[in-house]
Each structure stands twice: as structure tokens, then as C-alpha cells.
Amino acid sequence: MPVMSYIAYPVDGRYQEMSNDLASLENCQFIPAENEEIGIFVSDTQSAQEEDHLQERIKELSSIKCLAMTYAHSDEE
């Protein structure tokens, strides 16, 4: 049951698109910054398999320039 958090950076000019992309992912939260074009992305998946699937979906999102991981937790460890 992993919980991860990241700082999300958009490709130039695609902040809103990135925000929409990340906010639409299941079992995830996206918290946009109010005064900068970055956001906090938190994933809260139920299993390692679900986490792998999420990672695949994230890789497909072209609006993301970079996801910098800031926290990782897994009950399975």
C-alpha cells in the first residue's frame, strides 16, 4: 500500500494541462501551488501492482516535465 509524494513540474506552457492530467488519476491528489507553476502530487495506491500501473500511466503524460519524489511509504516493507 504505497504512499508517495512528488513535486510536479510542467512542460513550459502546459501547467493547466498537467494539473488536469494529474488530478484525474485515480487514488491520487494534486495540490496546485497558488503562486508558482508547480504542484504537489500524492499517490495513495492499494498495492504494488496498482502502483506499477499508475507509474505506467504517469509516463504517458506528456504535460509533465519532471516529478521529483519527496516521500515514499509502503506498509509492505
Binding site: 504512499v3 495540490i31 501551488a33 497558488e34 503562486n35 508558482e36 508547480i38 504537489i40 500524492v42
Partner: peptide, 29 residues
């Protein structure tokens, strides 16, 4: 407990973000 861990995850990201961008605001939290 799970929700608390999520809060921890958010707070870690907030710390990292404020370290890189002084004054950045995440009121949505």
C-alpha cells in the same frame, strides 16, 4: 493512520518545494 501518512507525504513535498521556491503557497492543502 493512512490519512495521517498521506498528510506526512504532502508535508514532505511542501518542505521540499519551499526549499526550492521561497514563498510558494499551497493553500489547497
Amino acid at each position: 493512520r493512512r490519512e495521517f501518512i498521506v498528510q506526512m507525504a504532502i508535508s514532505s513535498a511542501t518542505i521540499a518545494a519551499t526549499a526550492m521556491m521561497p514563498g510558494v503557497i499551497f493553500a489547497g492543502w
